[in-house]
Computed example of a mutant assay.
Amino acid sequence: MRSYHLSFKQQLPISVTEAWDFFSSPMNLARITPKEMAFTVTSDPALLETMYAGMIITYKVSPLLGIKINWMTEITQVEEEQYFIDEQRFGPYKFWHHQHHFKAIAGGTEMSDILTYGLPMGILGNIANSVFVANKLQQIFNFRKQKVVELFGDYPVR
């Protein structure tokens, strides 16, 4: 299986605590995901109040042609206000490992995402990544970046 890597950084004009509180809540994911993906958390919200290692989160998502699929991730590591890692247990990818890092900077927080993923179907998965998947993931993170600016404001250029 071939693996792919994407990374993203964004500076936010909010404290690490505020950033952590927002991004560590699975219930906020739909707010920063493109509407056409019809992303919904299907886990009981009462079970998602505080993130912890071992937390299982289930979703429905439509990544392609409006077809809804089930997706399950597990939060495998958490260091409060520093990082958390989610890994797919089942869903559209053969492998999904997503690191979310938070670091205090002057006037706010730097948030970094490191995504490593693999696709099923061998050579067909490789072609799908080249033609569609990598671009779609880039679009999702670009959308997320813009939504975060709308929610929290733009980090001032220093």
Rank of each mutant, 00 (worst) to 15 (best):
residue 1 M to R: 06
residue 4 Y to P: 00
residue 5 H to C: 04
residue 5 H to P: 01
residue 5 H to R: 09
residue 6 L to D: 13
residue 6 L to E: 14
residue 7 S to K: 06
residue 8 F to H: 09
residue 10 Q to V: 08
residue 10 Q to L: 11
residue 11 Q to H: 09
residue 14 I to N: 07
residue 17 T to M: 10
residue 17 T to H: 12
residue 18 E to S: 04
residue 19 A to G: 13
residue 19 A to T: 13
residue 22 F to G: 00
residue 26 P to L: 02
residue 28 N to Q: 10
residue 29 L to D: 15
residue 30 A to P: 10
residue 33 T to A: 10
residue 35 K to V: 14
residue 36 E to V: 07
residue 37 M to R: 07
residue 38 A to R: 12
residue 40 T to P: 09
residue 41 V to W: 04
residue 41 V to Y: 09
residue 42 T to K: 15
residue 42 T to F: 05
residue 42 T to W: 07
residue 43 S to G: 01
residue 43 S to E: 06
residue 45 P to K: 08
residue 46 A to P: 07
residue 48 L to I: 05
residue 49 E to I: 07
residue 53 A to F: 00
residue 54 G to L: 00
residue 55 M to T: 01
residue 56 I to P: 01
residue 56 I to V: 11
residue 58 T to Q: 12
residue 58 T to W: 01
residue 59 Y to A: 04
residue 61 V to A: 12
residue 63 P to Q: 14
residue 63 P to W: 10
residue 65 L to V: 08
residue 70 N to Q: 10
residue 72 M to Q: 15
residue 72 M to R: 15
residue 72 M to W: 09
residue 72 M to I: 12
residue 73 T to E: 08
residue 73 T to Y: 02
residue 74 E to N: 06
residue 75 I to M: 01
residue 76 T to A: 01
residue 76 T to C: 05
residue 85 I to E: 03
residue 86 D to M: 02
residue 90 F to A: 06
residue 90 F to G: 07
residue 90 F to N: 14
residue 95 F to N: 10
residue 96 W to S: 05
residue 97 H to N: 14
residue 98 H to G: 10
residue 102 F to A: 08
residue 103 K to P: 01
residue 104 A to T: 15
residue 106 A to V: 09
residue 107 G to L: 13
residue 110 E to R: 03
residue 111 M to Y: 00
residue 112 S to K: 10
residue 113 D to G: 06
residue 114 I to C: 04
residue 115 L to N: 01
residue 116 T to N: 11
residue 118 G to P: 01
residue 119 L to G: 01
residue 120 P to K: 07
residue 121 M to K: 04
residue 122 G to W: 13
residue 124 L to N: 10
residue 125 G to M: 10
residue 126 N to A: 09
residue 126 N to E: 12
residue 127 I to L: 05
residue 127 I to F: 08
residue 129 N to A: 13
residue 129 N to G: 04
residue 130 S to G: 06
residue 132 F to K: 14
residue 133 V to A: 05
residue 135 N to Q: 09
residue 137 L to T: 03
residue 137 L to M: 08
residue 140 I to C: 00
residue 143 F to I: 11
residue 143 F to P: 00
residue 145 K to Q: 15
residue 147 K to G: 09
residue 149 V to F: 14
residue 151 L to D: 03
residue 152 F to Q: 02
residue 152 F to M: 11
residue 152 F to D: 04
residue 153 G to A: 05
residue 154 D to Q: 13
residue 154 D to I: 15
residue 156 P to E: 13
residue 156 P to L: 03
